[in-house]
């Protein structure tokens, strides 16, 4: 029955994406419990980007956008506020857009470079967002710290998702 297998494939994909969104949310929650690394807002490991990159590579652009959107929406409802939603959306989507572009330019290879660009643009997006919300150009004093932190953490998350992609996830558990 080809119709049946097609349907079960769809269900499996939806369930997998749901699990990935939950995993991403869990990583985000764990990360928000860690003590701050530095007094500058926005410097954090960005570990949930591992899942976003994984979704982008394993499933595709639309799936990555969906998982990212669901993660940001739920995390803001559970742990945040409307303002943190704006920051997360600005950072998350500027990172994902540049990661899609970078992945296309690099033909799917060198995921750590893609990750670094993602981290860089995540922080750049949040910085512009902070400038608009805070209404003060003084936030740009943080630019070199945030850009450097974005490149370093992005390199790490890019490598982490590269190794995650090598793991074969069994069809049946």
């Amino acid at each position: 029955m080809p119709g049946h297998t097609d349907n079960s494939k769809k269900i499996k994909r939806t369930v997998t994406l749901g699990l990935l969104a939950a995993l991403s949310l869990g990583i985000y929650a764990f990360e928000s419990m860690l003590p701050p690394l530095f007094f500058i807002p926005g410097i954090k490991p960005g570990l949930s980007n591992i899942i976003t990159l994984y979704c982008l590579k394993r499933f595709g652009k639309r799936e990555a956008v969906t998982v990212l959107f669901v993660r940001i929406l739920i995390s803001s409802i559970l742990f945040g506020n409307p303002i943190s939603l704006i920051y997360s959306m600005a950072g998350g989507f500027s990172a994902l857009i540049i990661e899609i572009l970078s992945d296309a330019i690099l033909k799917g290879k060198y995921l750590h470079i893609t990750g670094s660009f993602g981290g860089l643009f995540h922080n750049a997006g949040q910085l512009i967002c902070a400038f608009l919300i805070m209404g003060s150009a003084a936030v740009f004093a943080y630019t070199p710290y945030l850009i450097l932190a974005g490149i370093i953490t992005g390199l790490f998350t890019g490598l982490a998702s590269f190794f995650l992609l090598k793991v074969k996830i069994p069809d049946r558990l």
Binding site: I105, L106, K109, L120, T143, Y145, I147, L148, I151
Partner: peptide, 21 residues
């Protein structure tokens, strides 16, 4: 090769940030 150009861009940006810091 695009990856060399992109990696070089990242290194230049990182060094620039360090200099600014």
């Amino acid at each position: 090769k695009p990856h060399i150009i992109m990696a070089a861009m990242l290194v230049i940006i990182a060094v620039l940030c360090l200099v600014l810091i």
